[in-house]
């Protein structure tokens, strides 16, 4: 390695003031950039920590019918603190199974959650006889009749400011079977 490579670069003397000016500009960019990062991250951390997502009980809706089976419930997304910002693309993507591992349905719901509000996200699973063969529909009805619980494979994702959060979980909920 040459002495020139290891030693300070030989800039022309005339560039001294320009380099000084440029180094001050870069210093201001650094101070501004790191300040923005620290303040923005603190703000987002505090704002995110106030968000709550609560699922309510899921149950069969509308009584028994030979034509349709309907299961419904809702998620409550609480984003109503005064310094909140909009939650973008709040998505619930789920698959539901009986306790015998029979797949009931899968669905994806996306909603925008406004700031300073509590938002209810309705989850409705409608099984229509027309979408299945007669045997398939009977099997589904039988499986729902016998199950004591529903198993949810759920993915919740949302965008908050510059960040995105994705949570996957396997949940179990009590279920009142078809009477």
């Amino acid at each position: 390695m040459s002495h020139k490579t290891l030693g300070p670069l030989d800039f022309k003397k005339e560039t001294h003031h320009f380099r000084k000016f440029l180094s001050i500009v870069l210093l201001l960019i650094l101070i501004g950039g790191y300040s923005f990062l620290i303040i923005y991250n603190l703000y987002i951390s505090f704002a995110t920590s106030e968000i709550r997502v609560e699922p309510s009980e899921f149950e069969q809706e509308g009584g028994y019918s030979n034509e349709t089976i309907a299961i419904g419930g809702e998620f409550l997304v609480d984003n109503d603190h005064w310094y909140s910002i909009d939650i973008r693309d709040f998505t619930i993507d789920y698959e539901v199974f009986t306790d015998d591992d029979v797949k009931i349905a899968s669905k994806k719901t996306t909603q925008q959650i406004p700031k300073q509000e509590k938002t209810k996200i309705k989850i409705e699973i409608g099984l229509d006889k027309d979408d299945y063969t007669l045997d398939e529909f009977k099997d589904l009805a039988e499986a729902l009749n016998q199950t004591k619980s529903l198993l949810w494979e759920i993915e919740v994702s949302f965008k908050y400011g510059l960040y995105e959060v994705i949570v996957n979980a396997e949940l179990e909920s009590d279920f009142e079977g078809i009477a």
């Binding site: 995105e164 959060v165 994705i166 949570v167 996957n168 979980a169 396997e170 949940l171």
Partner: peptide
Amino acid sequence: VKFSLSYI
């Protein structure tokens, strides 16, 4: 509860 979390 089995879970996984991604933070982008």
